Simulated assay, not measured.
Amino acid sequence: MIRVGLIGYGLAGSAFHAPLVAAEPRMRLAAVASSRPDAVRAALPDVAVVADADALVADPSVDLVVVATPNQLHAPLARATLETGKHVVVDKPFVTDPAEGEALIDLARERGRVLSVFHNRRWDGDFLTVEKLVRAGVLGDVMLAEFCWDRFRPDIKRGWREQPGDGAGLLADLGPHLVDQAFRLFGPPQAVRGDVAAQRGQAAVDDWFDLTLFYGRTRVRLSASTLVADPRPRFALHGTKGGFVKYGIDPQEARLRAGGSISAPGFGEDGDDLRGRLTIGDAAPERVPTERGDWRRFYAGVADAILDGAPPPVDPAEALAGLRLLELARRSAAEGRTLPLG
């Protein structure tokens, strides 16, 4: 049994990590460090509430620490945890400075500990559907792929994500997921062109971005906005044999935020009305059932890595490569030009 300590009980800690850890039979959530101890006790009466992160990191009974704090704390808390000889899961984005990510990867290797990054969107049902179609060659050679994540939030939300600082803004929030999905399908590009903006009147950080990744003749566009009331397709891929278009967002987050149970029948299943549309050549479009999403596979992979020596479910080097691309995209936007990857 892997005893897990969770640092942070905001949205990520309470809606994602706590229930997903509880759903993994080889793990037990043993302690939570949070500035909201009453909320933790109300939701998790059998879990110890620790005064602060340092106390949890120092607890010798904890085997794995999950860092689900504001982004600027990811690197120092992960470093402190690895130095005590514990395994670490870091919520995305991995770090705010890629150099810190390199140092953490080296430290985990030196200590022989598992280090992984919570890129749960690899197990979204819509992405699993797209991945299956691309890997099977159903679309032929993909020439254009568009991944869009639209919201309609004209009002500025309170909280650190909307305030200037390391790791704030929409590019830092949604960019890592979109880049990770692009890398899963196409690998690193040859070049990137970025456009990043603050569009809402009172926005203090970026709330819109559009990145173009260059792969020879192929273009991959990654875009997100806070001012799109009628969302674009979440995925649109067009290849030499045909295309696939899918609307809607994977339902797992909404159901977890609403207090839904991971073990409930149908969890992770998309509605039939949201099936993607596949068009091959001149044939009539057909609706494709969405693969079942399953974020539980992340912590199952973490348990495999700790107990059986399997590779981590998300290699931190892959997460770091994505952050380097986002750093280059931000520079591209500032300079107004396309930049090659080093």
Rank of each mutant, 00 (worst) to 15 (best):
L73Y: 13
A33C: 13
I105K: 12
V67E: 10
V66M: 12
E83T: 06
L77S: 10
A75I: 08
D38F: 03
L73D: 14
R79V: 01
G85L: 10
P37M: 11
T96I: 11
E102M: 03
V65Q: 14
V50R: 13
D91Q: 15
V50Y: 05
V49T: 04
A75M: 08
A58Q: 10
A53S: 15
S34W: 14
V66P: 05
A75L: 08
S61C: 14
G85R: 10
A75Q: 08
G101F: 02
F94T: 01
L82R: 04
A42D: 12
D97R: 14
P60N: 05
F94W: 08
D54F: 04
T69N: 01
A48I: 02
A108P: 12
P98I: 01
D59M: 13
V47C: 04
F94A: 04
V40G: 11
V95N: 01
D52T: 05
V66H: 05
V95H: 09
V66F: 09
P76W: 07
D63A: 00
A31D: 13
K92W: 05
E83C: 08
V40T: 01
V65E: 13
A39L: 15
A68L: 10
A80H: 07
V88N: 07
A103R: 15
A68T: 10
L44A: 05
L64A: 10
L82Q: 04
K92L: 05
E83W: 02
A53V: 08
T96Y: 01
V50G: 03
A31C: 15
V57H: 03
V40I: 06
L107Q: 08
L77M: 12
A103H: 06
P76C: 09
L64M: 10
D91N: 15
T81H: 07
K86S: 08
K92T: 05
A51W: 00
L77C: 12
A55H: 08
D54V: 10
V57P: 00
F94G: 03
D91R: 03
A78W: 00
S35K: 00
A53N: 12
T84S: 13
V65S: 14
A51I: 00
D63T: 00
T69L: 00
V40D: 07
F94P: 04
A68Y: 09
T84H: 09
D52M: 02
P37T: 09
S34A: 15
T84G: 11
T84N: 08
L82Y: 07
P45Q: 05
R79G: 02
V62S: 08
E83H: 02
P37K: 08
P93V: 07
A53R: 11
T69Q: 02
D97P: 01
H74T: 12
L73N: 13
L73E: 12
A55Y: 09
P45F: 07
P70L: 14
P76S: 09
T81D: 13
A68D: 05
A103Y: 03
T96M: 06
G85T: 12
A58K: 07
L64F: 02
L73R: 14
E100M: 05
L64R: 04
V47R: 00
Q72P: 01
D91W: 03
A58D: 14
E83A: 14
L77G: 12
D97F: 03
A58P: 07
A99T: 10
Q72L: 02
D63N: 01
E83L: 15
E102W: 02
D91S: 15
V90Y: 03
V50F: 02
T96Q: 03
P60E: 06
H87V: 10
A53M: 12
L77T: 11
S34P: 13
A58E: 14
N71Q: 13
D59Y: 13
E83P: 05
